[in-house]
Write a protein that binds this DNA or RNA. Structure first.
Lengths: 195, 195
DNA sequence: GTCTATACCAAGATAGAC
DNA sequence: GTCTATCTTGGTATAGAC
């Protein structure tokens, strides 16, 4: 049965965001049309413009929400006293947070080039804040003498790149449990930075 | 002065590939039009179809060439006797090869979703061959007792992901020389897998 | 081999009725 | 708030002249 007219502002908004997130991740921002998004949601294309001024704003909104949620979630993790413990906590947090949102993560990395210059600047600064938090852990570990790192900036990026890689291969029905994945990666991270 | 008509098959072909590589990397496959590519090369859009049957074939050709060059280059690196030496050689090779071709690398990772199913299968199998080569080194190191790795498959992907990260931040005019970058990464890779 | 011209289709976005 | 209808632009690909 066809959908009738009427007002659904409370549910249509989130549904547009969910559909856009999934479609952008799957096919890429440029390859997805507003008509496709509308079809997924079950409305006509014109109706989307009650929720976003244009397609670019929709992309930016999805990306900034993701980065802000990431930061807020990490900020809410209890801060351990020793750098080694904090790095272990970070490793587990980062892997789990990212595996729970594969689409948002994918978009946050892949669609940077499709942001306007202004929007790009905003997202990049959010990312830098997150990275600085990680670098802070590494610096403290060096000061505490438990880490040996020639360049904490590079080590930060290397650790994050390594952990992000999990998203490219992990499948929940695969041979490894999340706990095992976390343990394996923590082993490598720990050895890589240890004194 | 406007370009005149005439035959330039020997130079136009490569120029189309170079332009497509750069534009796909910069804006994404879906966001780049055949008209844009033609404009970069200095021909009309219709002329492109003397060199590629369609846009998809152009993308696939760029990606498969890249993967085949990667494999051929690694195969030509002299094979050291000990796993530790081979892993060091791999680390340096991978970083340098990828930094020399940032556009091709970017495309090879980001545009997989824009390949047809058939083309995707081909590219994926080329990638798997390359990864298996790396895993072979890690397995040998474990047998030789110099590496301690709970899961060589994951370690392979982790090492490659870490090294690929260099492309996201390295700039030749930056504060670190290529040799220094290589040394820093080798330090982390070595520690991460060592017994 | 390249050109101009165009067929054909789908994109983003808007207008106005309900 | 959503609909239908449409404007305008730009996409891939092809045809036929030079």
């Amino acid at each position: 049965m066809a959908r009738t007219q009427g007002s659904h502002s409370d549910i249509t908004g989130p549904r547009i965001r969910e559909a856009a997130l999934r479609l952008f991740a799957q096919h890429g921002y440029a390859a997805v049309s507003m008509r496709q998004i509308a079809k997924e949601v079950g409305v006509q294309a014109g109706a989307l413009y009650n929720y976003t001024p244009d397609k670019q704003s929709l992309l930016f909104s999805l990306m900034s929400s993701h980065m802000e949620e990431l930061q807020a979630a990490w900020d809410s993790v209890p801060r351990a006293a020793y750098a080694m413990d904090r790095l272990r906590a970070f490793t587990g947090f980062h892997i789990r947070f990212h595996l729970e949102r594969p689409d948002a993560v994918f978009i946050a990395y892949m669609e940077l080039r499709n942001l306007t210059e202004e929007n790009f600047t905003v997202i990049e600064s959010l990312r830098r804040v997150y990275e600085n938090g990680v670098e802070g852990i590494l610096k403290e570990g060096v000061e505490q003498g438990v880490f040996s790192i020639p360049d904490t900036k590079i080590a930060t990026l290397a650790v994050i790149a390594m952990l992000n890689g999990v998203n490219t291969w992990y499948r929940s029905e695969g041979r490894l449990s999340l706990d095992e994945v976390e343990r394996v990666y923590w082993g490598m991270v720990q050895k890589a930075v240890s004194a």
